[in-house]
Write a protein that binds this DNA or RNA. Structure first.
Lengths: 230, 230
DNA sequence: TTGCAATTCAAACAGTTGTATGAAACTATC
DNA sequence: GATAGTTTCATACAACTGTTTGAATTGCAA
């Protein structure tokens, strides 16, 4: 085991390079040069390039999921096993948005790496993402407890849309800034989280009164959505 | 010019292979084998591999944008220069969702290619996507006409979220199916479009009228969005 | 110190990649 | 039917990829 110096130098260098230039054009030789280690060290310590990438992503994913679940658990305990829906959603999208948005120059390497992983989606990472479903199920369960009269289908769509808005904002933050001529303030992370949560809550609670009526179809009848839906 | 047979055979083969296996592991040799043409034909007809990819994507993008704008224009003409917001949003996300969702086995090659392009995002495609802003601006303008009392910022966020939900649904349709154990019907394209449009309209019109109904619960605590906004 | 395992190293390997070349095969025009 | 221009073809190229090898070095325990 020695000091693990080489191993961690490789991890750090790889994460930095991937964060800066993407997975597409970073070679093992780039990494070992940045880390000042020998080319063979990567295969010696990690087995293969893909396993190196996987280890990087797994580490960051675990940290993110732990953060999410800690927020969720704290909220549910405080509420006696049931947290308000907006707090649940905040626990879901807050950590990601908080880490990946905000002033670009003060974004951590880890955050920039995760942004890349979200945009480029290379095979070893995709394989890991597929195991994320169990984690999301825990949030679906919490949401079900918060909104007991909503159908499972509605819960899943709400969860799905919340993630959609969060991830798409991260992926396309640059484009949104350009499109809006800077009128959308992408540095106001708290405001963005509020926005995403608020819209998600609307999606989940629209048409609540009339029980199981699917809100989507009747809500929009080729015209405006009716006020009673709120 | 002759018959262009080689040229179009390359285009067709490339689109098919990219749609099936992604950009990552399709080589020029795979393409020319599929197209039954010589290896050098690609560089002869397109200049480079990237230019081939670019031509494929540009073609499909133009078609999509044309379809969107036709729907928008028709709606605005019918309404005397002003279309209802939900119809505008439907023109924005409808064509994409209609093309890319629905029973997987009856999805066109073009649609599957565009899904890949949306997921993998390789350099030549990203360069083209950056020019899509002008197109989106036309929708922002139409939305502004439909909702004259909403600020530009709100318009852009609404547009952004609509695209977020549409694209994320396309990208992650498989995961949503698995997560929801099939309870979310990804083959009901019309229903999905209704859902996306309905939520987007809510996001755009929340707090518009003085309807007392709170959309969520104390929706947002850290709240930029205060109760009076709704 | 000796012995032994863990680690580092330079070098080579085996394969793939996109691209370039120059001759051959076409096609249409005169 | 010769000619000029276009298109196809087999082949070579040069660069780069992740991985492997086997020897050198290191660090630690006996």
């Amino acid at each position: 085991m020695a000091s693990d110096h080489t191993r961690s130098a490789i991890l750090a260098a790889a994460e930095r390079l991937y964060a800066d230039r993407g997975f597409g054009d970073v070679t093992l030789r780039d990494i070992v040069a940045e880390a000042n280690v020998n080319l063979a060290a990567v295969n010696y310590h990690f087995g293969s390039k893909d396993e190196l990438i996987a280890e990087l992503f797994v580490t960051r994913s675990i940290a993110l999921n732990r953060e999410r679940l800690a927020e969720l658990k704290a909220a549910e305990e405080q509420g006696g096993g049931r947290a308000p829906i907006d707090v649940i959603l905040r626990a879901l999208v807050g950590p990601t948005l908080h880490g990946c948005l905000g002033p670009a120059n003060q974004r951590s390497t880890a955050a920039r790496f995760m942004i890349r992983a979200s945009i480029e989606s290379v095979p070893p990472i995709r394989r890991i993402k597929n195991r994320e479903i169990d984690h999301l199920r825990k949030f679906a369960a919490a949401m079900r407890r918060a909104l007991p009269d909503r159908s499972d289908e509605e819960i899943y769509w709400g969860l799905h849309f919340a993630l959609a808005m969060a991830h798409h904002t991260i992926r396309e933050s640059e484009r949104l800034t350009k499109l809006s001529d800077g009128q959308c303030d992408l540095d106001d992370v708290q405001g963005i989280i509020d926005r995403v949560v608020s819209v998600s809550v609307m999606a989940l609670t629209a048409g609540k009164a009339k029980s199981k009526a699917p809100p989507a179809r009747p809500a929009v009848l080729h015209g405006r959505l009716t006020r009673e839906d709120f």
